[in-house]
């Protein structure tokens, strides 16, 4: 474990908690893409199947459980509890265009052709594009609530910090995982446009609005 990965994990945890807090406090999931949250729940459930068979550390197990529980609760909030506030008219990204290619790629490019490894690879590839429905929804509505932009910033920052963690581990531990690195770079690149808007608008106290 290094400081970059720790801050990255905490940023990820913060993002997940910000989203849950926003939905719970405002009792509304307006502006939130249920499809992205469903994909994130899929990412965690396919990545942490070794939760009970491969013990790494108390921290690792604790975080995996938190991620799985929070992502499922978020999906429950959006599609069940606060269903009336879910903006399905703007959440129209075709997720099958993500899941099918990612599933195929996971079969073709992986480290080991075993079920657990292929599911892990699927999860890594899926995570890199899981935010697309959310970014697409914001581009359609033309704006995002400030709390939602803080959520997205923390979520984007987490994988950007993981890239720094991979550079660190390469130079100091000789460890690198090309699949995770490439997917992590793709994931972070997808946030660049949002990062620019967040830094130039939200941090200036303005509302995040995309040029319609």
């Amino acid at each position: 474990m290094n400081v970059f990965r720790l801050i990255g994990d905490l940023s990820h945890l913060l993002a997940i908690l910000i989203l849950l807090w926003k939905i719970w406090k405002t009792r509304s999931c307006s502006g939130i893409s249920g499809k992205s949250q469903f994909l994130f729940a899929l990412v965690f459930t396919t990545r942490y199947l070794d939760l009970f068979t491969n013990f790494i550390s108390p921290y690792n197990t604790f975080m995996k459980i938190v991620y799985i529980v929070c992502s499922c609760v978020t999906v429950y909030f959006i599609y069940v509890k606060f269903k009336a506030t879910y903006d399905s008219n703007h959440d129209t990204f075709r997720v099958e265009f993500l899941v099918v290619p990612v599933g195929g790629l996971a079969f073709l490019v992986n480290h080991d052709f075993t079920p657990l490894e292929i599911l892990w690879t699927f999860s890594i590839y899926l995570e890199s594009v899981a935010i697309l429905p959310q970014l697409f929804m914001i581009s359609k509505t033309g704006e995002a609530e400030t709390i939602t932009s803080h959520y997205l910033f923390a979520l984007g920052a987490y994988r950007a910090l993981y890239i720094v963690n991979w550079v660190y581990r390469y130079y100091f531990e000789g460890f690198f995982d090309l699949i995770a690195i490439v997917a992590g770079c793709v994931q972070t690149i997808l946030y660049c446009d949002f990062f620019y808007l967040y830094i130039t608008k939200v941090l200036q106290g303005k509302k995040l609005s995309l040029p319609a």
Binding site: D50, N54, S57, W120, D177
Partner: peptide
């Protein structure tokens, strides 16, 4: 091959 132990990242 990547052993399962390598999967120490979240």
């Amino acid at each position: 091959e990547k052993s399962q132990m390598d999967k120490d990242e979240l």
